[in-house]
């Protein structure tokens, strides 16, 4: 869709300009005399991004009549909902990990995703998290003899 190409081109060009004008100068100090500047390659990469984004904008504006590589609807509702649901599961799992229960985080990650994806069979909701956690425990703690958490 031309609109998506146009918007992404504008967003990337603005992002690149912001990086060049503010972030790179603020986040990378100048090198001592005689050294190649550490800003050189990040600056060059962003100049390329800005230049190519500008080209993308121009090309999109000139080719509005031509077919595009993107589908009519770029972001479908079901995919955005899936992104939201999976993000929620990850957020809950991370909170549990912070609270010191990595086991609980693992259970929530697997069982939560299963529930969000429509799985309702209690046996699957119980056995799958348990089986995966057990398999990882056997692989790392017993077979490889190394702790991961």
């Amino acid at each position: 869709m031309e609109r998506a190409d146009l918007i992404s081109g504008v967003v990337l060009a603005v992002f690149g300009l912001m990086m060049l004008a503010f972030v790179i100068p603020m986040q990378i100090e100048q090198a001592p005399e005689g050294y190649v500047s550490p800003r050189l390659v990040p600056n060059l990469a962003m100049i390329v991004v800005v230049g190519l984004s500008a080209l993308l904008i121009v090309k999109t504006l000139r080719q509005t009549q031509k077919p595009t590589s993107l589908p009519e609807i770029v972001f479908s509702r079901s995919e955005m909902m899936a992104l939201l649901k999976i993000s929620t599961v990850f957020a809950v799992a991370l909170v549990l990990f912070w609270l010191g229960t990595p086991l609980g985080a693992g259970v929530v990650l697997v069982a939560g995703t299963l529930i969000f994806l429509g799985e309702r069979r209690p046996l699957i909701l119980t056995l799958m998290p348990a089986g995966l956690l057990l398999a990882i425990w056997v692989l790392f703690y017993k077979v490889l003899g190394t702790a991961i958490v």
């Binding site: 999976i86 693992g106 697997v110 995703t113 299963l114 995966l132 991961i148």
Partner: peptide, 17 residues
């Protein structure tokens, strides 16, 4: 729907390691 949770879990283990 059974594969996705398993892959997400294994991805987390792989990244965490």
């Amino acid at each position: 729907r059974l594969i996705i949770p398993a892959v997400l879990f294994l991805c987390c283990v792989g990244a965490y390691m």
